[in-house]
Design a protein around this nucleic acid. Structure first.
Length: 460
DNA sequence: GGAACTCGCCAC
DNA sequence: AAACGTGGCGAGTTCC
C-alpha cells in the first residue's frame, strides 16, 4: 500500500478506538428477560418435537440413544441415510445439506420446528448472550478491525456490531430493543446511498452508469424491473411496482455485479416471488401485484409459464445488461482481470494492494468493496477529528461498512447532520479527486431514550 | 479432559 | 461454471 493508504489505517484505528471506548448502552435486564422468553419458547418447541413420531423413530434408529436436533451431522444422517430422503441440495462436503432451504424443500412438518428452534437459539445464544457476556457497566464495546479482511474492509467482534438482525422482524425486536443511546440522547444512523455502485463507476466509468448515478430522475433498478417483469405501465410511486423494483435490485442487479448469472437469478427471483421452481406456473400463484393480479398470472400472460422459460428470458436480459446497457463496465472487468494476470496484484484507487491467488469475481469485487469502505472510513476520521477538537457531547459509537452510528446529544443534532453532510458529500470528493460521481447520504433517527429498534428515516 | 481445529449453519 | 466479504455458535474431531 502507499503512504496515503497506510495513514488511513493508522488514523482509522485511532478514530475507531474512540468509538470502541464510547460503546453502546445495553438494557441488560431486557436482554436477560428476552433470553428467558426465548428459552421458554425453545423448550416448548423441543417438547413438541420430542413427542413426534419423527423424533421417536430417529431415537429408535440410534438404538434408543437421545438425538441432538442441533447436530447437523445427526440430522443429515437420519434424513438422508435412515429415512432415505433425496437431498435437494448438497453442502461443501457433498453430503445432503441441512440448511434452511434444504429442510424447507423436504416438506416435513417437524423440520420446520427444528428450523424455528435454530432461529430462536441463534437470537438467544449469538446476540443476546453476546451482549450479556461482553457488557461492562451496562455498555458493550464492539471492536473494529482494519487488519483482518482481504478486501481492506473492516470487521467487528466481541460483540460483532456489523451483523445485528434487521430484516427479520422477530429477531430485530428481541435484539435491537436491548440497544439504547445514553440517557437523554438518541441513536442516529447515517448511510451512504449506493456507495458501491458509485465507487464502481469511478473504476469503470461506464457512461450509462454515470447517467444513472448522476441524474436523480433516472432509476436503474426500476428500468431493470420493467424489463424483467415486462411491465408497460411502470409507475415508480406504486407500492406494488416498488416491490418489483426491490426484486430486480436484490435478485438480479446486485447478484450480476457480484458475478452471478441468469440461472441463479431465475431461481432466487422465483423464490422471492413465490413461484414454483419445479412445476409449471399457475395463474393463481405468486405474490400479488398492485392490480391484484398474482405474479404467476402476469408472467403467464407474457408467455413466461415456467422457471425454465423465465431463465431463458433472463439470459437475454443478462446479455443486454452487459453488452448493450453497460458495455464499458463489461470491458473494465476484462481489463482488470488481464491486468491482474499480468502484474499479479490489484491496486485500489485508495492506494491499497491485494496480492495472492484471486479469481475473476474477486478481481472485480475487491476494489469496489474496499474502496467504498475507505470512503466511509475517511469521513469517520474527519468527523471524529472535529468532534474531538470541539468537544462535542455527541459520539460516534459504531460503523457498518457504509454507515456511521451516532449517539446524539439532541441540541447538537442539526449541527451533526450539517457537518456530516458536508464531509460525506463535499470534503470527501476533494480528498479523493478520482470520485467522479455525486455521493449522497440518508439518515435514520430514533427518538430520545428510544432503542435502536425504532429507527425511522428522516429528511436531511 | 481441555485446546485447537474444521464444518455447517446463519446473522449482516 | 456460475454470488463479494465477514463473525459467531454448536457439533464433532484430533491431538496432547
Amino acid at each position: 500500500m502507499n503512504s496515503e493508504a497506510y495513514n488511513l489505517l493508522h488514523d482509522g484505528s485511532l478514530a475507531l478506538g474512540r468509538a470502541e471506548r464510547a460503546g453502546i448502552r445495553v438494557d441488560l435486564k431486557r436482554a436477560k428477560k428476552n433470553k428467558e422468553a426465548l428459552t421458554i419458547k425453545i423448550e416448548a418447541l423441543t417438547k413438541e418435537l420430542h413427542k413426534s413420531n419423527f423424533y421417536k423413530r430417529w431415537v429408535y434408529s440410534a438404538g434408543g440413544t437421545p438425538r441432538n436436533m442441533n447436530s447437523d451431522t445427526q440430522l443429515g444422517n437420519y434424513l438422508y441415510k435412515v429415512l432415505k430422503l433425496k437431498p435437494t441440495k448438497l453442502n461443501t462436503s457433498k453430503k445432503g445439506s441441512t440448511d434452511e432451504e434444504a429442510l424447507e424443500s423436504l416438506n416435513v412438518p417437524e423440520l420446520n420446528t427444528i428450523l424455528k428452534i435454530r432461529k430462536l437459539k441463534n437470537i438467544r445464544d449469538t446476540f443476546l448472550e453476546g451482549f450479556v457476556r461482553e457488557a461492562v457497566d451496562g455498555f458493550v464495546h464492539p471492536f473494529y478491525n482494519l487488519n483482518l479482511v482481504v478486501t481492506y474492509r473492516s470487521s467487528s467482534d466481541s460483540p460483532n456490531f456489523q451483523n445485528i438482525p434487521v430484516r427479520s422482524l422477530e429477531a430485530k425486536k428481541y435484539i435491537r430493543k436491548c440497544l439504547y443511546p445514553r440517557r437523554g440522547h438518541q441513536i442516529m444512523e447515517l448511510d451512504f446511498k449506493g456507495i458501491e455502485v458509485g465507487v464502481g463507476t469511478c473504476y469503470h466509468k461506464d457512461p450509462t452508469m454515470i447517467k444513472y448515478v448522476t441524474n436523480p430522475k433516472s432509476d436503474m433498478h426500476g428500468d431493470m424491473a420493467k424489463q424483467i417483469f415486462l411491465i408497460d405501465d411502470w409507475d415508480p410511486s406504486h407500492d406494488g411496482h416498488s416491490t418489483l423494483r426491490n426484486g430486480a435490485k436484490n435478485g438480479f442487479v446486485f447478484p450480476q455485479f457480484y458475478g452471478d448469472y441468469y440461472g441463479n437469478n431465475a431461481v432466487s427471483l422465483a423464490k422471492w416471488g413465490r413461484l414454483s421452481s419445479t412445476t409449471r406456473w399457475s395463474k393463481s400463484e405468486g405474490i400479488l401485484l398492485p392490480n391484484k393480479v398474482p405474479l404467476g398470472k402476469h408472467m403467464i400472460n407474457h408467455s413466461l409459464t415456467s422457471i425454465k422459460l423465465f431463465a431463458d428470458h433472463l439470459r437475454g436480459i443478462e446479455d443486454h445488461f452487459w453488452n448493450e446497457r453497460f458495455p464499458v463496465y463489461n470491458d473494465w472487468k476484462d481489463k482488470a482481470w488481464r491486468q491482474y494476470q499480468k502484474k499479479g496484484y490489484l491496486e485500489m484507487l485508495t492506494g491499497f494492494k491485494c496480492q495472492g491467488v484471486m479469481d475473476r469475481k474477486m478481481i472485480v469485487n475487491y476494489p469496489i468493496q474496499g474502496t467504498a469502505f475507505h470512503c466511509l472510513l475517511w469521513c469517520l476520521i474527519e468527523l471524529d477529528r472535529i468532534m474531538y477538537r470541539e468537544g462535542w457531547e455527541t459520539k460516534i459509537i459504531g460503523q457498518i461498512h457504509d454507515s456511521l452510528i451516532f449517539d446524539i446529544y439532541p441540541p447538537e443534532l442539526s449541527m451533526v447532520i450539517e457537518i456530516a453532510k458536508r464531509i460525506t458529500t463535499v470534503d470527501l470528493l476533494k480528498n479523493y479527486p478520482w470520485i467522479i460521481v455525486p455521493l449522497s447520504v440518508e439518515a435514520e433517527l430514533c427518538n430520545i431514550d428510544e432503542s435502536w429498534y425504532y429507527k425511522k428515516k428522516i429528511k436531511i
